[in-house]
Design a protein around this nucleic acid. Structure first.
Lengths: 168, 168
DNA sequence: GCAAAATTGTTAGGGGCCTTACTAGATGCC
DNA sequence: GGCATCTAGTAAGGCCCCTAACAATTTTGC
């Protein structure tokens, strides 16, 4: 979603459309724009390791689950990654083909299996996570702890307006 | 990009990865999550009018240009919409097929043409924009003018960190 | 003038993610 | 036990956007 209109010209329409709230649009566009920049930057970073956003989230969730001594089913990963089970099948297919994860049959329920990091997948995560975390820290380096909290609070406030944007 | 990891489990890794900055990640995830909500809500809204984000941006830019008494080439729309010229070709193909825009040959330069709203396209915009603007106003209704300004300032501050996220 | 360079829009092919519809297996209700 | 129902994962197809290579045309530089 890179398609965000420029703001300048909107001023032309203020008199024609009484429902137009310039500061609302300006703020909304600022969020969408930043989110595009962010997504693009993360994508560039991930692609240097042969990953996409989706592939990374799968691997990092497996890495975290492993740390916690557990294992995950496709449906659980899909839930953790906020995507559909069908999308997860596709992600796991290519991750397995690339030798980063393996599918292990469930001993009792033959519909299910669990997903495991391979040694290669584990090494990829261990190798890239320090850099990944460092980059995210750098992204926020210009904001104090107070500013980060304020930002989160304001984002949460915007979030309460989303139903009004979506609903009727 | 709906794939954003849950935050809780990250706490497990703080001791293993010295570069991990929990409040940076938490704030970043909050932004990406909200942006997903926002994008999804806008998509739902647009699809009720037979549009997507991209299709809408094209039409609204043409509508604005018309208001300003001008006309746009595909390359100019692509620039305004922040997408590639190739993507614009595809968007214009389907918009033309749906009778919402028309292509008009450039009188002097035979490589180029300009894009115009059809009557039907213009009516679609006039019909949906009041609702569209009203929804965006509703999204931000819970934030005061001061809060909106603060939010934009903080987003701008985050934006200065993006190169550090992307670069080397 | 005229070949080289630059520019416009298009085509071809691919990646990522989605939704819908399906298959195989487990579970529950009589 | 047997049939309806639910669930897990998959397959197929679509949308949106990208890059790279291309044809047609204009501009530039000798």
């Amino acid at each position: 979603m890179k398609l965000v209109p420029r703001y300048e010209r909107l001023q032309l329409q203020v008199h024609r459309f009484p429902t137009l709230d310039p500061s609302a649009i300006e703020t909304c566009i600022a969020m969408l724009r930043l989110s595009n920049e962010l997504t693009g930057a993360y994508e560039a970073h991930f692609s240097r390791h042969g990953l996409s956003q989706g592939r990374f989230v799968v691997l990092v969730q497996l890495f975290l689950a492993e740390d916690a001594g557990g294992t995950l089913s496709p449906a659980e990963i899909a839930e953790l990654a906020s995507c559909s089970r069908a999308t997860m099948t596709g992600l796991l297919d290519t991750l397995e083909k690339d030798g980063l994860v393996s599918r292990v049959d469930h001993p009792e329920d033959r519909r299910m299996y669990s997903v495991h990091l391979t040694e290669r997948g584990r090494e990829l995560m261990q190798g890239m996570l320090p850099d990944h975390y460092r980059r995210t820290a750098a992204l926020m380096a210009h904001l104090s702890q107070d500013e980060r909290e304020t930002l989160r609070a304001l984002l949460a406030k915007v979030s309460t307006g989303v139903p009004a944007l979506r609903d009727p």
